[in-house]
């Protein structure tokens, strides 16, 4: 059993079915006795919990460090503002202003301050939840509204990848920093697309991203039957595996829209997810050894200093 495998479920285009595939795969494999973990890294709009319906055992706030200025000690030298690349701290006429939301926690300002007037203080950027859902180990991140430190929260969620589980990461859509953070260190990436010009355009962008990151990947076509066959032609030309074609079935959409797992309500799709599971079992762990070890090591060594999570019982 693939107990030591991190699979990222990603897509360039939004709404192609990342969460559908990720939650169904987690649920299905757990039913077969697989030790499986689902990690919702789509922290700007997490929705995996709607389908898995986990019982949350505990949750905690995720914080990052932002500067706190002691104006009594401040000499108004302005060095903090000069080092900040994001205008998160600025010295105006011997008064120092901070803009916490722009801070990237680089620690530059509190390190450079000659008067020792700046100290790091925690800023709550979101929450992380832990729970169980019919045998699936659930971890979900949720960014606070108005906050933009998405990669920091994703990093925090990924620190909870368990070494003896098949870990399934639900990745945010697109090809920006949060996606890079979510797929980083995965053993394998499943790219979900739909057979439409939009789907293909965004698929190509994502293939470019995973190739740049040197991550092994394969493709799942969702809503198969709509659009055209350009995605298949592209995969054939690029020599990319298509591991699953999920048909455009109204009943799947109905199950989805009522928050249900497909394999629970439409048993004919068990076969597809069984094939997907078999494919995953054949993925060689260690194909991407260095990256995998990096994720695992973080997990062992505990929390990094740039962000931390305090767990409430």
């Amino acid at each position: 059993m693939p107990d030591n495998l991190v699979i990222a479920v990603a897509s360039g285009k939004g709404g192609t079915g990342k969460t559908t595939i990720a939650t169904n795969l987690a649920h299905y494999t757990a039913r077969l006795g697989q030790k499986v973990q689902y990690l919702d890294c789509d922290v700007e709009e997490p929705n995996g919990h709607i389908f898995l319906k986990p019982k949350i055992d505990f949750s905690g706030a995720v914080t990052i460090d932002v500067p706190q200025v002691d104006l009594e000690k401040c000499t108004g030298c302005g060095k903090c503002g000069e080092i900040c690349q994001y205008s998160a701290i600025i010295c105006i006429k011997e008064n120092v202003l901070t803009f916490e939301q722009l801070c990237h926690s680089c620690s530059g300002c509190w390190r450079i301050c000659p008067a020792d007037a700046i100290k790091p203080k925690p800023l709550n950027i979101g929450d992380i939840e832990f729970g169980k859902a019919s045998g699936v180990d659930f971890v979900g991140g949720k960014l606070r509204i108005g906050y933009v430190r998405t990669p920091s929260l994703i990093k925090e969620v990924k620190k909870h990848i368990k070494e003896d589980h098949l870990a399934i990461i639900d990745v945010p859509p697109g090809t920006s920093c949060p996606v890079v953070e979510a797929v980083r260190g995965a053993d394998f990436v499943l790219l979900i697309t739909e057979p439409t010009p939009f789907g293909l355009n965004d698929l190509k962008l994502t293939v470019g991203l995973v190739r740049e990151m040197n991550l092994p990947f394969a493709i799942i076509i969702n809503r198969y039957g709509i659009g055209n066959n350009e995605v298949e032609k592209y995969c054939a030309a690029e020599n990319i595996d298509i591991v699953l074609k999920l048909p455009d079935d109204r009943r799947i959409a109905e199950a989805y829209s009522s928050g249900r797992i497909i394999v629970d309500v439409l048993s004919e799709y068990l076969k597809q997810f069984s094939e997907l599971y078999e494919y995953i079992k054949r993925i060689k762990v260690g194909i991407n050894d260095k990256r995998r070890l990096r994720v695992r090591r973080k997990n062992k060594s505990g929390f990094r200093s740039s962000s931390s999570c305090t767990q409430d019982p």
């Binding site: 503002g81 994001y86 205008s87 600025i90 105006i92 202003l97 803009f99 722009l102």
Partner: peptide
């Protein structure tokens, strides 16, 4: 064309 914080750095320039 800054990625972010344009208003703050512009404010500093004007001051």
């Amino acid at each position: 064309a800054a990625a972010g914080g344009a208003g703050i750095s512009s404010g500093k320039v004007v001051i």
